[in-house]
Amino acid sequence: MAMNFDESPSRRLPVYLLLDTSGSMAGAPIVAVNNGVGLLYRELLNNPSSVETVWMSVITFAADAKRQPLTELTHFTPPVLTAGGPTAMGAALKELGRALDTEIIPNVPGGDRKGDYKPLAFLLTDGVPTDEWQTAAEALKKRTVGRLGTFVALGCGDEVKVDVLKAITDKVLLMRDVQGDTLQEFFRWVSASIKQASIAAPRTGTGESLTMMPPPPPTIETI
């Protein structure tokens, strides 16, 4: 005796990656980030819970911000990133806010589908914003509905302004000695965090468990 339910739309765990592709990322850094996104993708594909729930979006920022729409993990293709131009981080934050407004599906009483799980966002930058970023950052912090579950900002290297990142989110990490290996560790940690959230998500909870993350790797400081 078995039931065959239709394949109705799944509940999604939205994950946004905000990646700095400005000129200072050219060369080794952008290669490392490309490798890191690929690594993240492959790691998530090995986790059945992530395969069934994670939807990814990449927002790159340089002269302006470009957003890849939220895409089911199994249909996601890691973008090939190239670097060049200034650091329009404000535009990226604005784009993230727009994505939360337009892409997130909330629970609606009596609705025909279940809403999304709390979204996660990870920002990686090695520089300072070259555009107006405060308005978008404040708007993200002030959201009362459609808030991010977790927003982590990773600053890479000595040029990054920790104060700016702290104004964007409370969860700021700093990688002073940036190497290909250490950046791979960061993406592995992002993968572990997403996997943990994808395991916590389908279980009944207050939603808090989605925001609990493993401690970052030793090469990264928590600010």
Partner: peptide, 13 residues
């Protein structure tokens, strides 16, 4: 993965 050149200190090209 693509080999990453060594010596990246972040920020500077």
């Amino acid at each position: 993965v693509v080999p990453v050149p060594t010596g990246w200190s972040g920020g500077a090209e």
